[in-house]
Structure formats: structure tokens, C-alpha cells
Computed example of a mutant assay.
Amino acid sequence: MIIRPTPNWFRMLFVWHGSVLKAIIPQLAFMTLVSVLAMYSHGRIFGEKIPLNTTPFTLCGVALTIFLAFRNNASYERYWEARRLWGNVLIAARALISQFRNYVPASSAPYENRRIPRLLIAFAYALKHQLRHSDPRADLERLLGFEQAANLTARVFQPIVLLDEARRHLAALNRSGALSDTKLWMLDRQLNDLGAAVGGCERILSTPIPFAYGVLLHRTVYAYCALLPFGLIDSIGFATPLICVFVSYTLLALEAIAGQISDPFGLAPNNLALDSMTCTIERAVLELCDEAMPPPVQPGPHFQLT
């Protein structure tokens, strides 16, 4: 995720880091080459004039724009839902810790008062690593100890296992009389919200946008951009490369952005900053527990927050 002050209108024209321009430079170079060849050959291939004008590109351009808008809306909906789910994780974690510390006396459950917060923080980190297919062992060892971290690495759905352990601790407090049935129900509701957030994230991760949509859009965009110079050469002449590269930049950039945000849990510049989000959850939980907080995650080079 790019976190930077918004530059003025003039500097925005030349922003490099944070845009997708550097990801599509090879494609733009290819389109430039095709446009220059079309200009110097006057729209001919192997001596034969390509019988194209602006009319079919106008009609195809409208259809292509509608399809690109559909793809971008579908991709952004996945990104927005992922961000909302992680926001729910933060809300539920704060509520659970606040309720637990105020409804369960520390003197009656000193172990659980230390254990439950660590389980919630470990849950957030385990969820992040599960979504990014990375190794969670370092974070789990830091929060839970070497033995339990080693046991968790053999489990498939580690966040759910951690929620289950937290629920077992709450059930034990209920059986001992330290937590009433009503308060247990309130705390268990927050655990259910956390479990629902995990399920929502797993749904996004396991069901990408149908591959056929991406193939169709990819082929259509490249065919449109490659044929465009031959349809414009008779009407705009030497300006053909400039206009064709500009149109190609717009279409290819939209496709690239949609491709990035359709997988919101990755490490691309426009993906969600899961490192920062998990650190925020840890800081929120520790602050409610009156414990020292780690520093917030700062943007790296080029204003990118991971």
C-alpha cells in the first residue's frame, strides 16, 4: 500500500513510485514500436494496406471500456471486502480484550489475563502469514513460546486453532465461576466475529476472479492496442505513435491495477499493508493491557507500507 502526501497537480503528472507505469514499460515499448512501424509503412504489412479506419475502434473501444470497468469493479470489491474484514478483526480484538479485562477480575484469573491477549495477537499474525503463504514461526515463537509454536506449525488452519484455544480458556473460566454465562456469551460473540473474518479472507484467497475473464480481457486489450495504429495512420499521420501509446497506457495500466488489487493479500505496491495492520492490532491489544507497545510500522522506500 502506498502511503504518501498527495502531491500538487503538476507533480502528480510525473509520479513514478506508486504508479504502475514501470510495470508496463515493456508493453508500452512494444506498442511504440508497432506504432512507428505502422507510421513508416503507411499502414501496410508486407506491402498490403490494412483496410482499417477509426469506426471499428470507436465501437470496440466502448465495449472494451465497459468490460474493463467490470473487471476493475470486481477487483476493487475484493480489495474493499478484504480491508473491511481486517477492520473487523481490529474491532473485535479490541472489544474482546476490553470486555475480558473488565468482566474477569485479574486476581481470579491471572494466567488467562496474560494468555488471552497473546493468543489474540498471535491469531492476527497467523492469519497474515496464512494469507501470504509465509512462515509464521518467528512471530508465533515470540508470542507463544517455542513449544506451542512448534505444535502450531503442524496445523493447517492456525488462526482457527488459536481461536479455539482462547474459547477453551473462556469456557474454563465459566466453569470455575469467574465468568458468568451472559458475559461468556458476550465474549464468545467477538470470537465468532474473528472466525467470520477468517472465513471471509479465506473465501477471497481461494476463489480468484475466473481465469477466463483475465484471458479475454488480456487478449482484447493487446489486440486493440496493436491494431489501433493501422486505423489511425490515415487520419492523424505522424501523431499516431503518441496517441496510440497514450491509449495503450490507459488500457494496460487499468488491467495492471485490476490484476494487483484482485489479490489484496499479496506484496504488490497496491496490496493491503498486512504488516502494518497486524502491528496495529498488537499495539491496540497491548495498550488495553497496559503493556509496552512495539513501534508502528513505517513506510519503506518510496512510501510503500507492507
Rank of each mutant, 00 (worst) to 15 (best):
A171C: 03
F230P: 06
I236W: 03
L163P: 03
L216K: 02
T250R: 13
S206V: 03
K183Y: 07
S262M: 12
L216Q: 09
I261T: 05
L242F: 15
Q260L: 05
C201N: 07
D188L: 01
H133G: 06
G195C: 06
P210A: 10
P136N: 08
N151C: 04
E165M: 08
N174S: 13
L187C: 08
G259R: 12
S262T: 12
A196S: 14
T278G: 03
H133V: 05
F211G: 06
D188R: 05
F265H: 11
V161I: 09
A239C: 02
F265E: 12
L163C: 04
N151V: 02
R168D: 08
I160T: 14
T182P: 00
R189P: 00
V245M: 12
D139K: 09
L184N: 03
F265D: 11
G259C: 02
L274R: 06
E202I: 05
V221S: 02
Y249I: 03
W185S: 14
F157M: 11
T278H: 08
E202T: 08
I209K: 04
G177V: 06
P159E: 10
L227N: 02
A253T: 10
M186I: 14
G200I: 05
S180H: 01
F146C: 02
L216D: 02
P210Y: 09
T153A: 12
G266L: 04
A150F: 02
D275N: 15
L144A: 04
A171W: 00
G199S: 14
D181N: 04
A253E: 09
L144E: 07
D263T: 11
R189Y: 10
R203D: 03
P229I: 11
P210C: 04
I233V: 15
L251E: 08
L194A: 11
N270F: 02
L252F: 09
I204K: 09
L242I: 15
S248I: 09
D181Q: 07
N270P: 00
D234F: 01
A258T: 10
